[in-house]
């Protein structure tokens, strides 16, 4: 479920349970209707928090710990239906339910609702378009006997070109071995270097139009 829809559903469940407890504890006490709606929503959050703690303690350690919360969703739907039925009944008793007419809605009211809808939509877009990591290259390695096995994993959506440079010191001299360039996709790529000494590997992300690239990671494997 998309995050914003999930939040809306959650607020709906909070409001439903809040309306339930308000109508049971103090019916017709919180007036006018905007106050009643607001108290229902906020009480719902407090009540569901306490109910969640209670259910969590009762079902502690059992598979029902979080599943008990899934029961709340259908209960909320049933309660909402009951609340609507009750509201319709009350309206009828109070002199008949007036038929909805478009002429009742004033222009500014409709425009206000539209601006709210636009606001929610635009915030959803801001959330959807938020800067997210395009991907990453992860270099890791392990010793297997006297050899070193290097693993390169890319989480970029498109294949990227990388280059490795392995450096080790032996017999009073420094040796190096370039590996790559190689294009890697989403599957991990392994390199094996038969070096018994301390190995220092640098990983380069090769940018397009450049043969060198920038060192993005270092890894040192002990002997």
């Amino acid at each position: 479920m998309p995050s914003f829809l999930a939040l809306t559903v959650s607020l709906f469940v909070f409001w439903t349970f809040g309306a339930l407890i308000v109508s049971v504890c103090c019916p017709r006490f919180f007036t006018p209707w905007p106050i009643s709606w607001a108290v229902s929503l906020l009480s719902g959050i407090a009540m569901m928090g306490v109910l969640g703690v209670g259910l969590g303690l009762v079902t502690s350690g059992s598979p029902w710990f979080s599943r008990s919360a899934t029961v709340e969703l259908p209960v909320a739907v049933v309660v909402a239906i009951l609340l609507i039925v009750r509201w319709v009944r009350d309206q009828r008793r109070a002199g008949g339910l007036p038929a909805p007419r478009l002429t009742r809605l004033s222009g500014p009211f409709v425009l206000s609702i539209l601006s709210l809808v636009l606001f929610v939509a635009m915030v959803s877009v801001v959330w959807a378009k938020r800067p997210q990591p395009a991907g990453a290259i992860q270099l890791s390695g392990a010793r297997q006997g006297s050899a070193a096995v290097l693993t390169v994993l890319s989480t970029y959506a498109k294949p990227v070109t990388i280059r490795l440079n392995a450096v080790w010191t032996a017999n009073a001299g420094t040796h190096s071995r370039p590996l790559g360039p190689i294009r890697i996709g989403t599957k991990p790529v392994h390199f094996t270097i038969p070096v018994p000494y301390q190995l220092k590997v640098s990983l380069y992300r090769v940018q397009s139009g450049s043969s060198q690239g920038r060192a993005v990671q270092w890894l040192v494997l002990p002997p």
């Binding site: 959650s10 969640g52 969590g56 899934t70």
Partner: peptide, 25 residues
């Protein structure tokens, strides 16, 4: 545990991802 309890419930109701839960709730 009230905040954690609410998070458990929202996760159970909607299946929101962990990253979204920590950021949005």
């Amino acid at each position: 545990p009230l905040l954690q309890s609410l998070t458990v419930e929202i996760r159970a109701w909607t299946g929101m991802s962990l990253t979204d839960l920590i950021i949005l709730v």
